[in-house]
Amino acid sequence: MSEELYETNRSAEQLAGDEGGFPEQEQTPPGLTTEMTPRPDHGEESWVGRDRLKGLKALVTGGDSGIGRAVAIAFAREGADVAINYLPDEQSDAEDTASWIEKAGAKAVLVPGDLTDEATARKVVDDAAGSLGGLNILVNNAGAQWARREQGLEDVTTEQMDQIFKVNLYALFWVTQQALKYLGKGDSIINVSSIQAYDPSVALLDYASTKAAINNFTVNLAAELGPKGIRANAVAPGPIWTPLQPATKPGESMPKFGSDAPLGRAGQPAELAGAFVFLASPAEASYVTGTVVGVTGGKPVF
C-alpha cells in the first residue's frame, strides 16, 4: 500500500471514536458540515487527481456536503468542471465546496433549488448544462431520510413519506429525464443507492424502500440507454459520516454509528469518491453499466 493511501485510511480510522462512532449530536435538517464533530473528510487534503475526467462536465445533486462534496472535489481534481445542486439553506456548505473545486483549477457552478418541485428540478439541469457548456456526467446523490422514530411503520407519516419519496425517487426521475437532453455516447449517470436496499433498518422503512427502487431504476435505465452509448450505474454506501446522520437520527445513536460494519467503523465521504470516479471514467468503465458498486465497510450487497 502506498504511503499516501495508508495515510488516508489511517485518517478515516482516527476520525471515528473508540466504538467506531462519534460524539452525541443532533442538527435540524438538512444539516451543515460546519456543525459536525468531527468534521468529515471529503478528500480536501488527500485526493490526488490523474486527469481521468479531463474536459468533462458534471452535475452532482446534493453536492454541497457529504458524499456529494467528496465526489465534486474528486471530479474537479480529475479535470472535470462541476455544477453542484443543493438547498438554499445549505449555501455556506455549497460555497465551501465550490472553493475546493476552483482550487483544483476547475469551473464551479452553483445551482441551488429544491428538487421536490418538478419545474425546479428540470431548471437545475438546464442551468447546470448552460453554465458548463454541456453535460457528460450526472450524479443523482441528493437524498432524504428520517430515523427519529420509536417504531417502524406506525410512525411513518404521510408528510415524511412525501418528502422522502419526492427527494429520493421523483427528483431522480425528473433530473435524469432532463439530463438526457444533454447526455450522449460515452456519458454516464451514477445514482446513489444504499446498504439499506439490502439490509434495511426498521426505522428507515420508507428510505430503504426508495433505495431498493433506485437499484431497479438503475438496471432498467442501463438497458434503455445502452444502445445510445450512455452508461448507468449506482453506488451503494454503507454507514458514512455526513450531515444527514446528525440531522435525521437520534443523537444518542451517534457513538455507535457504523460500529456494526465488519471494518468496525463508519466510512468517510472521501472513501467513496474512487467508486464514482471509476464509474464516471469513459476509459476505465467503458464496459460497466447496470451495476451497483457497494462501498459498505464489508456489509454485503447482494
Rank of each mutant, 00 (worst) to 15 (best):
E19Y: 15
K57C: 03
D81H: 12
M36Y: 03
Q178W: 07
A144T: 05
T37L: 05
T218N: 07
N191Q: 13
A222E: 12
G79Q: 08
G226P: 01
K211W: 01
M161I: 05
V292S: 13
G17N: 09
L279K: 13
L115T: 10
A128D: 00
I164H: 01
D51P: 08
N168M: 03
V82E: 10
L205T: 15
A72H: 00
K228Y: 11
V288D: 05
S92C: 02
P227V: 02
L183Y: 04
V295P: 10
D89Y: 00
G31E: 03
Q14V: 15
A94C: 11
F278A: 05
K103L: 02
G238Y: 08
A70F: 07
E159V: 07
D206Q: 07
I84V: 14
G20E: 11
A70P: 09
W241A: 06
D162W: 10
N220I: 03
L272V: 10
I73A: 09
S281W: 08
V301E: 08
V125W: 03
R149S: 00
L110W: 09
K54I: 00
D117Y: 13
L244D: 10
W174Q: 00
A74Y: 00
S92L: 15
Q196N: 12
Q177L: 10
P300I: 05
N216S: 08
D117M: 04
G134H: 08
L183W: 00
G184W: 07
G31P: 01
A212E: 09
T242K: 09
A144K: 10
I101E: 07
E78T: 11
A203L: 06
L183Q: 03
T61E: 03
V139H: 04
P237M: 01
T37R: 15
G290L: 01
A106F: 12
D81V: 03
L32E: 13
Y6E: 15
D127M: 04
L180M: 05
N233Y: 07
R231L: 06
E284I: 05
D126N: 10
S286A: 11
K123G: 07
W241M: 04
I84M: 09
Q160P: 01
V48L: 13
S131V: 12
S99Y: 14
G298M: 11
S281E: 00
T158D: 02
E19A: 13
P30A: 03
P262W: 01
E224I: 06
P255K: 09
S281V: 02
K103G: 00
S286P: 02
T289A: 00
D89I: 08
L205D: 05
L225I: 05
D126R: 11
K123E: 14
W174P: 04
S92R: 13
A197N: 05
D206C: 05
G238C: 02
N141S: 08
K249W: 15
T291Q: 13
V301A: 11
W47Y: 09
R50S: 06
Y287H: 12
P239E: 14
A74T: 04
A119C: 01
V167F: 03
R50G: 09
G43Y: 08
T296G: 04
K57R: 15
S286L: 02
A232D: 04
E3H: 12
F22T: 12
E78R: 03
E35N: 15
A285L: 08
G143L: 04
L115W: 07
